[in-house]
């Protein structure tokens, strides 16, 4: 990693963390918004700074943080995964089946790997646009989840529930989840050769040459397939977390997460056109989304209106990102 250098236009200073040519994107905008939101919430509501609300907040933010990390892995290489929400639904549906957790949990991750491979192979080998491939996969996976569990219900193994709601030495389990997924995401994106490939592939696409990385001898096809497997795996992890919290299966639980995760990643400064972004930005984006939802809940805003507001935020964020390509 230390030998890697960002490419810059002539006459611009390379800066890895801040500024216009940062490879990490404008993550500090999200940080600024978080600070503002927290200050506003502290000033206007009494319920915000309570331990109860802090616990709620972490548990609310956790699934989105996990999915956003997975989503970011594919967005960095100029892809997108719209099937993550359905993978989460499928995960809760599988976990609520009758059976030993030692069978169900591996089954969940096996299913995720399979979905990721199908997405990746369709995109790389069969030349399908990522959005179309994952959009169709979203419906296929949702259909399977609805067959397994037509309506919300069933019960999730105690092991999964205690993994999410339990605590070790007084530290609640979500804290360990957070440490685990952030470490994993950091290793994948910023601490490995594979992560560097992701940025190289995405940067090539963003600059208009789809096969730059390929021409430099990277195994781009294989990396893209692995990236989609990772995004499905993170979605399965998020689904497991949610299943542990609601202790049942629900085929509708993931419906918001595809767009929410894209919003979180985009707010965190990651360019949807590829090649620019940082893990910390996506995490800040997810935390910001959770804070906003928390604040709107505390303010007693209608859930329907909250959905509309999230849509407006998504539109604003993506409209502010510039890209060369028009269309999809």
């Amino acid at each position: 990693m230390s030998t890697s250098k960002t490419h810059n236009l002539p006459g611009t200073k390379p800066n890895r963390w801040l500024g216009k040519n940062s490879r990490q994107g404008n993550w500090w905008a999200a940080l600024l918004l978080i600070v503002t939101t927290v200050l506003i919430l502290l000033a206007t509501t009494d319920d915000f700074a309570t331990p109860q609300n802090a616990n709620n907040l972490l548990a609310q933010a956790m699934p989105l943080i996990i999915v956003a990390i997975g989503q970011m892995i594919v967005i960095v290489l100029a892809g997108m995964d719209l099937s993550v929400g359905s993978v989460m639904s499928l995960t809760t549906a599988i976990l609520a089946l009758d059976g030993s957790p030692l069978v169900l949990i591996p089954l969940v991750f096996l299913a995720a790997v399979l979905i990721g491979i199908v997405n990746g192979v369709a995109i790389v080998r069969l030349n399908v646009h990522p959005i179309i491939a994952t959009l169709s996969m979203q419906f296929i996976v949702l259909g399977i989840a609805q067959i397994l569990r037509p309506v919300a219900g069933g019960s999730v193994p105690d092991l999964v529930v205690s993994l999410v709601t339990g605590s070790v030495f007084g530290v609640p389990a979500p804290v360990f989840w957070a440490i685990f997924v952030v470490a994993l995401g950091w290793k994948i994106l910023h601490g490995s050769r594979f992560g560097l490939y992701l940025f190289a592939i995405g940067g090539g696409v963003a600059s208009g040459q789809d096969d730059t990385a390929h021409n430099f001898g990277l195994k781009d096809g294989r990396s893209i397939i692995i990236a989609y497997v990772f995004s499905a795996l993170f979605a399965a992890l998020a689904g497991t977390f949610i299943a542990g919290r609601i202790a049942s299966g629900d085929p509708g639980v993931g419906s918001q997460f595809a767009l929410d995760s894209i919003t979180a990643v985009a707010i965190g400064g990651t360019q949807l056109s590829g090649g620019v972004g940082g893990l910390h930005g996506s995490i800040l984006g997810a935390v910001l989304m959770a804070l906003l939802a928390n604040g709107m809940n505390l303010a007693g805003l209608s859930a329907f209106l909250q959905g509309a507001i999230k849509g407006v935020i998504l539109l604003l964020v993506v409209a502010m990102q510039s890209r060369k390509k028009m269309g999809l």
Binding site: I131, L272, A308, K310, G311, V318, Q321, K324, L328
Partner: peptide, 25 residues
């Protein structure tokens, strides 16, 4: 899509989300 070069999927999906939320409200 044409002037701001927003990804068409994201833009039109967000429009649907906004209108749906508003109508349900």
């Amino acid at each position: 899509v044409a002037m701001r070069r927003v990804s068409a999927v994201i833009a039109t999906l967000a429009v649907t989300v906004i209108i749906t939320g508003f109508v349900q409200f």
